[in-house]
Design a binder for these strands. Structure first.
Lengths: 214, 214
DNA sequence: ACATTGGTATCACAGGTGTGATAGAAAGGT
DNA sequence: ACCTTTCTATCACACCTGTGATACCAATGT
């Protein structure tokens, strides 16, 4: 009956226009009209696929989050078992894995930047708050999975997985924040080096030669 | 000749209204009219003290940055010399000092939140970019001062002050970011604990018992 | 007394926003 | 042929924005 167009594909295309626009000119520059222009559609068409601006924003933020988590999941599937790797190789692999979250190339930079804009906007936009909480918790649970795994392998002393997960999550978000806002200062090289150093520093504590605490 | 009003005070009051408004409703909610309403003035009065919206925004961001740096400076002046303190006391003092940057109470939360909004807005607003760079570099140079001091006191191995400063800056900004956007998750207690743990972990490396690297 | 200056208050305008309503066109099903 | 549904395309409206222009008020200097 319709004019034979893939509705889901159209929605994704429009959301892509939102992301492109938000990455280039910032979230405030995203309006129904600017999105229509960016996607080469008429504003009426945009409104046909989305109930309004709220739906459009929600969908765009949702699809950004989903894209990042999908990339992480696919990366996770092709990880080598830690038991087969040397400590250095394991740290390298972990660094590469977590670097998927950081703005290290144009594509990831665009995603991270837009996500930062969405997260900040979500502070006062009730339509986006649950998505923002999901994203912020995502970083934390990801970090938590890693510190838990390290605890199981006795690379981390027991009882600190919680705190170390918060620390890793803050470091990841901080690197993302700084690198997204000023990539010339916090370069991809700096990001990688900092992340690598942090992961390396975590397992240092477990050195049997080092005194535990007191 | 005038009507006997302190112009600088008025400008500060208006900037305060901007900050209050930005903290409560977000930067996009800051307009000349909303600022006038928030400060109890007429829009004409606001425009008399500022050339336009650009000047107003610049001034408001500038005054936020200045306020934070002023608080840090005053705190720095009343620091105890490290030589007089035990390692634990030194770490506590350092934690308290750096905590001045974090949104641990209502006042600091408002400042940090507004600053985050300004920093993100500055990515596409050329009027604010230099201020944003100044703020981001501020965190880094502060962190650098600390890692340099630790290096001098042999609490850090030589050659890592650079990297560790970037790591500390990212951690601080990450904590600020997460805590500003979701204070219920990243609570003040978590912030303090993470910061404390990080500072403690820095000096662990210098333990003579631990093997340097290879 | 008078002009000047600083401050307050409005009006009006052009531009942008989301959205309700409506109409046309195109491709199926019957 | 006709109707239905999907999609595209406009128009119009109310609202908000920054800003130029203008007027009015009050106090001070001369």
């Amino acid at each position: 009956m319709p004019k034979q167009v893939d509705g889901e594909q159209r929605r994704a295309d429009i959301a892509d226009a939102v992301l492109r626009l938000a990455a280039r000119d910032g979230l405030p520059a995203v309006s129904l009209r600017s999105v229509a222009a960016e996607s080469g559609l008429n504003i009426g068409s945009v409104r046909h696929y989305f109930d309004g601006q709220r739906d459009l924003m929600r969908f765009a933020m949702r699809s950004t989050i989903d894209r990042v988590t999908a990339r992480l999941e696919s990366r996770r599937a092709s990880l080598h078992p830690f038991a087969e790797l040397s400590p250095d190789e394991a740290a390298d692999q972990m660094t590469d894995f977590l670097a998927e979250l950081l703005p290290l190339d144009a594509a990831r930079r665009a995603e991270a930047t837009v996500l930062v804009e969405f997260l900040v906007a979500a502070r006062v936009d009730t339509d986006l708050t649950e998505l923002a909480h999901e994203a912020l918790r995502g970083t934390l649970t990801l970090a938590r999975r890693i510190t838990d795994a390290m605890t199981r392998r006795s690379l981390l002393p027991p009882g600190v997985a919680d705190l170390e997960a918060e620390r890793l999550a803050a470091l990841l978000d901080g690197l993302t924040f700084r690198s997204a806002l000023q990539p010339e200062a916090t370069t991809p090289e700096v990001c990688r080096a900092v992340l690598r150093a942090h992961l390396a520093s975590l397992r240092v504590r477990a050195d049997p030669a080092a005194a535990p605490d007191a």
